[in-house]
């Protein structure tokens, strides 16, 4: 890799790190200034809404199968998501619903693949 390309890698790495780190420094200063008030309320409301919604957007993106043309992928996604939600509802845990979702998704792919 050429030295110019290395500069591009480093610039991207530093830029990405600063986008993750500087908002924390800014928010900590803000929280310190508003130390006497409630810590949660010190956060601008739009920011506390946008954070969870960004994650929700990533969920939306990841729900689209890698092969969106395939009805089987959509079927497996829907059934896998239902299995995840059911196990989450029962256990209110993190690991089991993910394991159940992946296993169900895989089972649908395998069974439907055998049938097809």
């Amino acid at each position: 890799m050429s030295s110019v390309l290395w500069v591009a890698v480093l610039a991207t790495a530093i830029g990405t790190f600063l986008m993750r780190c500087l908002p924390l420094v800014w928010m900590r200063r803000r929280l310190r200034k508003l130390a006497e008030s409630d810590r949660i309320d010190a956060m601008p409301q739009w920011l506390s809404i946008l954070g969870p919604l960004m994650i929700t957007a990533v969920l939306g993106v990841s729900l689209v199968p890698s092969d969106p043309e395939s009805p089987l992928s959509w079927l497996a996604t829907v059934i896998g998501a239902i299995a995840t939600l059911l196990v989450w509802y029962r256990t209110r845990s993190l690991g089991w619903p993910v394991a159940a979702g992946v296993a169900t998704y895989g089972a649908v792919i395998v069974v439907a693949g055998m049938g097809g």
Partner: peptide, 23 residues
């Protein structure tokens, strides 16, 4: 390349402030 890559990562700016109250 650098500008486009950083633009994709801009969403990360809202993450740390959301965690700050708990750090």
């Amino acid at each position: 390349v650098v500008v486009m890559t950083l633009l994709i990562n801009v969403r990360h700016v809202v993450y740390a402030p959301n965690l700050a109250p708990w750090l």
